[in-house]
Amino acid sequence: MPRPKSDFEQLHPCDFYTPEELLDADRMYTVYEIARLLQELDPDAELEAGTEDILLDWAIPWVMNNAEDLVVAEPTAEDEPGYYGLKTDEER
């Protein structure tokens, strides 16, 4: 059920990092690592499963919204996620 804005003590701008601000050009990241980076956490930070699920709710749309600036690599194993990286000028 939607809630009135007046129910909240503070409202924040909905700003997200650009791919260039978030990712190193020479690295590839899983969506789980991107989710952590979007929250200013270390990409290897240990998280509870429920917390990770919530972070993925932010990361997946971010990846989709920034797809034209990203490259994708296949997972290294069938039970692992794929990898995303910043598209360089040579890859455009």
Results as ranks from 00 to 15, higher is better:
4 P>I: 03
1 M>N: 08
63 V>G: 01
37 L>E: 11
88 T>P: 01
30 T>G: 11
28 M>D: 02
83 Y>H: 13
82 G>L: 08
67 A>T: 11
26 D>F: 09
62 W>H: 02
41 L>N: 12
42 D>A: 07
32 Y>M: 09
11 L>M: 03
24 D>E: 11
20 E>T: 03
21 E>T: 02
73 A>Y: 04
92 R>W: 14
76 T>P: 00
81 P>Q: 04
10 Q>H: 04
91 E>I: 12
34 I>P: 01
4 P>R: 08
78 E>V: 06
46 E>T: 13
54 I>H: 06
68 E>K: 14
64 M>N: 09
65 N>G: 07
24 D>P: 01
80 E>G: 05
38 L>A: 02
74 E>L: 13
92 R>T: 13
78 E>L: 12
37 L>T: 06
37 L>Y: 04
8 F>S: 01
10 Q>N: 06
17 Y>Q: 06
84 Y>R: 08
12 H>N: 12
72 V>S: 11
11 L>R: 00
79 D>I: 12
77 A>G: 04
84 Y>D: 07
76 T>F: 15
76 T>D: 13
83 Y>P: 01
43 P>H: 03
43 P>C: 06
34 I>R: 03
51 T>E: 09
44 D>T: 08
32 Y>P: 04
68 E>P: 05
18 T>P: 02
54 I>W: 01
54 I>N: 12
66 N>R: 05
74 E>I: 10
20 E>N: 15
55 L>D: 01
60 I>G: 05
53 D>P: 00
50 G>V: 10
51 T>N: 07
54 I>Q: 11
14 C>Y: 09
46 E>M: 08
30 T>W: 00
76 T>N: 12
19 P>L: 00
46 E>S: 12
21 E>N: 02
28 M>P: 01
33 E>Q: 15
82 G>F: 06
64 M>T: 05
37 L>A: 05
24 D>S: 12
6 S>N: 06
56 L>C: 06
